[in-house]
């Protein structure tokens, strides 16, 4: 490529970095052959728009979504990685659920220790006021798509501590909860049933993942 092409349109060069409104205008409709003069973040946004518009206009996005949706959905359903996070006695039952008697690994549950690698947050115990901001932070650190399972009476409504001075009355007062599993404590079979319910919920939702906006 010649230096003349990199230099490009003088009006485009003036627009870069001077004002954001100018650069926005240029990014929407860059002249042909002059995309080499864009900054890297502008280039990414421009190419993203271009590919999305082309895929949307030709109907390619819908086609790819329809083909890949069952595959991605199957993968999401059968690998809900929960966060290895225990609060109280329901955490013991959670450990028992992955023991050989109730081998919950066959549903694809692999406990991960970092919230960055997780899909499901299991709230298994009473959330006290001191824990609430930390739990909220853990939830926000998890990447999308994510689900929350409220396990046991304490996480559903506060349980026996609902009237207490330091226990929050239910996890759904500060984060969205998808599946409630009643029990005090929850038996491993009930936890398994809760995760089957979550699988059903993911299957019904079926989000397309190709070029998602």
């Amino acid at each position: 490529m010649s230096s003349k092409r990199i230099g490009g349109n003088p009006s485009l060069r003036r627009g870069l970095g001077s004002k954001t409104t100018d650069s926005e205008k240029i990014m929407e409709d860059p002249p042909a052959g002059d995309w080499l003069a864009l900054r890297s973040d502008q280039f990414l946004k421009w190419i993203d728009n271009a590919v999305y518009n082309a895929a949307e206009a030709t109907g390619m996005r819908e086609v790819v979504d329809r083909v890949t949706r069952p595959i991605f959905n199957y993968a999401q359903r059968f690998s809900p990685h929960p966060l290895h996070f225990g609060i109280m006695c329901c955490a013991i039952e959670m450990g028992q659920a992955s023991a050989p008697d109730h081998d919950i690994d066959r549903l694809g549950l692999v406990y991960r220790s970092s919230p960055r690698q997780c899909d499901v947050l299991i709230v298994n115990g009473p959330v006290c006021e001191k824990l609430r901001p930390k739990l909220k932070t853990l939830y926000e650190q998890m990447p999308e798509p994510k689900w929350v399972v409220a396990m046991g009476e304490c996480a559903i409504s506060g349980g026996p501590y609902w009237d207490s001075y330091s226990v929050v009355a239910g996890a759904d007062t500060f984060m969205p909860v998808d599946v409630y599993i009643p029990g005090c404590p929850v038996r491993p079979e009930a936890l398994m049933h809760g995760f089957l319910t979550l699988q059903k919920k993911i299957r019904e939702k079926e989000p397309g993942l190709f070029l998602r906006r």
């Binding site: 006021e129 001191k130 207490s164 001075y165 330091s166």
Partner: peptide, 21 residues
């Protein structure tokens, strides 16, 4: 040590009423 900073009152006193605090 157990309750969050800024908590009002001392809850194990017999005359503690949560609704007030």
């Amino acid at each position: 040590v157990l309750l969050p900073e800024g908590f009002a009152g001392h809850p194990l006193r017999k005359d503690y009423v949560y609704e007030i605090h």
